[in-house]
Design a protein around this nucleic acid. Structure first.
Lengths: 356, 356
DNA sequence: TCTTAGCACTCAAGGTATGTGAGTGCTAGA
DNA sequence: TCTAGCACTCACATACCTTGAGTGCTAAGA
C-alpha cells in the first residue's frame, strides 16, 4: 500500500472533509461514504484508502474505533487542490451588492456592513480593518469654537480617516478667526505628508518673524502628533462582528473556546500578525490551524483578503472560524466582498479598484 | 413564627446574599453562617430565620437539602435597605480619573474608556451610549472635494456627534467653491434645529429667485436628512465592552447563557427599553432579574446611570451582569464613572455637570 | 416564647459496573 | 486489487449505589 495520492484517494479525502464540514460532531465512517455517496466499492476498500491517507498525514483518528477526521494538512490539501471554486450565487451577489449600494454614501458604514455581511454569509466571526493610505496624508482640517477657550479640531486625512479632538487656546477666539486659521492651514498643507508639515513648522519657527501665528503653530503641532500616531498604529482598528454566528457553530459548546476567541478578537491580538501578510499579497489568504504562529490560534482558521486600491488605500477583511469551516463558501464570500469594497473605494477615489 | 422582618433576620438575609455573591455556585447553608461569621446562635436558629425569610419571599431553595439562595425580591431588599454604600476607594478613584485625564482631549475615546473601565472595575459587561443633546442642533459643516464630482460632507452637531458622508455633484467644483458654500451655510444655520433648516429650505424654494444655489440646496437636504435620522434613533449607538469579564463569572459555564447575553447586547435589543428610564431619572437605577419587562433579561441585572449636563447633553452608562452581582461595588463604580464623565462634559461645554 | 440538640429524611453529585453499537484492522479468498 | 467476514476497541448511555451536605421537625431546656 504505497502512500501515494491517487484519484480515488483524492475523492475519498474530499468526501471525508466535506462530510466532516457538514457534520463536525461525528467523525466520518467508511460505511457512510459508500452509502451516502454511492461509491462503487466496499467499505473495506474505503478503509484501506483512509488508512493510506492517514499515512500521508491527511486524516486522523480520535480513537481506534472512531471514524476519520481531517488533519490541518488535509484541509490544506483540500483547499489547494480539491475544493470546488464556485463563486457565490448570482442572487447572493446581487443581494450583497444591493445592501452596499444602500449605504454607498456613508463611508463609515461600509466597514460595519462588510463585517455583518461577511459574518452572516460565512456563518463565522468576521474582521475588517479600515482602508488606510500607504502614507498618511493631510486632507483638510476644521476648527470649531465650542465654548470660551475650548476648540474642537476635526482632522480629515486623505484616506477618509477622521480624527476629532479638543484643545484649549490661550485667549478666546471667534469662529471667524478660527475659520481663517483653518483655511490658511488647509491651503498650505494640501495633500502633505507629515514630514512636510513638520518641516513647515520648523522652518517657520526658525524665522525671525514667523509667518505662522501662535494658534497656527499649536494646531499644526496637534496635527503632526495625530498623524504620527496614526502612522504608528499600522493595523488601525480591527472591527469585528459575528460572534453570535460563530457561537452557533457546534465546536463552541464549551465556554473555554468562546473565551479563547474573544481574547483573540479583542484588540486583534491573535490577528495582527496576519494583517501585514494579507496586505502584502494578492488574492485570498488561508491560514489553517497549526499553521498559525500563535499557539492560541491552533484550533482556528483565518481567511483574509486585501481590498482597496493598490498604491492608494488598502484594508483587510476576512473571516475567522474553527479549522473545520466551509472553506469554499468562506473563500468565495471573502473574495466577493473584497471586490465589492474595492469597487466602492474605486468610485470614491476614482482609481482602478484592486480586483483579484 | 410571624413573617416579619427583625434586625437579626435582616442580618441573616444580608449575610446570605453577600456570601452567595462571593460564592455563587454553592447555596449558603445555615451551618456556614454560624461558622464563618461567628454568630452567637446555633444553626437551627438560623434555619428558622431562613425559613421565615423564605416565607417573606426573600430566599429560596433549589431542592430540599440544599442551602438558601436569594430571590430577586431578596436582592431588591438588599439593595434598598441592607447594602453597604461605600464609594470606590480613593486609590481607585484616582487611577480612574487619571486614565480619563490622559484622553481628555480625544472626545471619541471617552466612551471607549468608560466602557473598558466600567467592565474591568465591575467585572461584568458594560454599556455606554454617546452623550446626546436633547435637541439635535446644527453646529458646523464642511465640504471637501474628494475627486471629480465626489464631495465629502462632514457634519458636526452641537453635541459633538460627527457624521460623514459622500455625495455627487452635477459638475465638478473647486475646493474654494465648496468652502464658500460651506461657510455660507454655517453662517445661516448657526445652532439651528432641524426644523429651522427645513423652513429655510422651503422658504427659499418658494422664492422666484432663490438665494440658495443648487449645491446649497442639495447639501441642506442632506443635512436635514442626516439630522432627522439622528433624531429618530434616540438611543444612538450602544457601545458595549467587557464580554470577557462577564464570561469569567461562573454562571456562564453553559454557552446558552453566553448566546443570550450576546443577543441582548447586539444592537442593544434587551437594553433599549431601559435607556429612556435611565435618562429620565437622577441617580443610579438598578433593575433586577424578573423586574425586567423582557423575558430574556430575567436572569440578569442592570445598573444604569445618566451622565452629562442636564438640559444640554446626556448619555447613559452602566453595567449588566447576572442577578447575582456585587451590587455595592457595581453601583459605586457606575456612580463614580458617571460623575467623571459628567465632569468631562462639563469642562467641554462649560455648563454645570450633572452630579448625582 | 425563644433557642437548641438530635435525628430522620432528601437529594445532587460522583463513582462503578455493564451493555450497546458503531467503526476499525486484519485475514483469507475471489 | 478488491471484498466478505470477523474479532476487537472504545465512547456513550444507563442503571445502580454510595456519600455527605443540608434541611425540617420535634421535644426538651432557658
Amino acid at each position: 500500500m504505497a502512500a501515494e495520492i491517487s484519484e480515488r484517494r483524492e475523492l475519498v479525502l474530499k468526501l471525508v472533509i466535506q462530510e466532516f464540514i457538514e457534520n463536525p460532531l461525528t467523525p466520518v465512517a467508511s460505511e457512510l461514504l459508500v452509502r451516502k455517496y454511492g461509491m462503487n466499492v466496499s467499505s473495506a476498500t474505503i478503509r484501506n484508502e483512509m488508512a493510506a491517507l492517514e499515512d500521508l498525514g491527511y486524516l486522523t483518528h480520535w480513537h481506534t474505533s472512531a471514524g476519520r477526521v481531517p488533519t490541518d494538512a488535509g484541509y490544506r490539501y483540500y483547499v489547494e487542490n480539491l475544493m470546488d471554486r464556485t463563486p457565490l450565487s448570482a442572487t447572493e451577489q446581487r443581494t450583497i451588492r444591493h445592501q452596499f449600494y444602500q449605504v454607498r454614501s456613508e463611508l463609515d458604514q461600509w466597514i460595519q456592513l462588510a463585517g455583518a455581511v461577511l459574518a452572516r454569509t460565512a456563518q463565522n466571526a468576521s474582521v475588517v480593518t479600515q482602508p488606510r493610505a500607504y502614507q498618511v496624508r493631510f486632507k483638510h482640517l476644521e476648527l470649531i469654537a465650542i465654548h470660551d477657550t475650548t476648540v474642537l479640531l476635526v482632522l480629515v486625512l486623505h484616506d477618509g480617516t477622521i480624527r476629532q479632538q479638543t484643545f484649549s487656546v490661550e485667549s478666546a477666539r471667534s469662529q471667524d478667526d478660527l475659520s481663517r486659521v483653518a483655511s490658511r492651514i488647509n491651503e498650505r498643507c494640501h495633500d502633505a505628508v507629515v514630514g512636510k508639515i513638520e518641516d513647515l513648522l520648523h522652518q517657520d519657527r526658525a524665522l525671525p518673524l514667523p509667518t505662522l501665528d501662535d494658534l497656527e503653530q499649536q494646531v499644526l503641532d496637534l496635527v503632526v502628533k495625530a498623524m504620527r500616531q496614526l502612522e504608528e498604529q499600522v493595523n488601525s482598528q480591527i472591527h469585528s462582528d459575528g460572534l453570535i454566528e460563530m457561537l452557533n457553530q457546534p465546536e463552541f459548546a464549551q465556554v473555554e473556546r468562546v473565551r479563547q476567541v474573544l481574547e483573540m478578537l479583542q484588540g486583534g491580538k491573535g490577528l495582527s500578525p496576519l494583517i501585514p501578510r494579507a496586505l502584502a499579497s494578492n488574492g485570498v489568504q488561508v491560514v489553517i490551524g497549526g499553521e498559525h504562529s500563535r499557539d492560541e490560534m491552533r484550533e482556528y482558521s483565518v481567511v483574509l483578503s486585501r481590498y482597496g486600491i493598490t498604491g492608494e488605500v488598502v484594508g483587510v477583511l476576512g473571516v475567522i472560524g474553527p479549522t473545520r469551516m466551509a472553506y469554499p463558501r468562506t473563500i468565495s464570500t471573502v473574495r466577493y466582498i473584497s471586490t465589492v469594497m474595492s469597487d466602492l473605494l474605486g468610485d470614491l477615489y476614482g482609481g482602478e479598484s484592486n480586483r483579484s
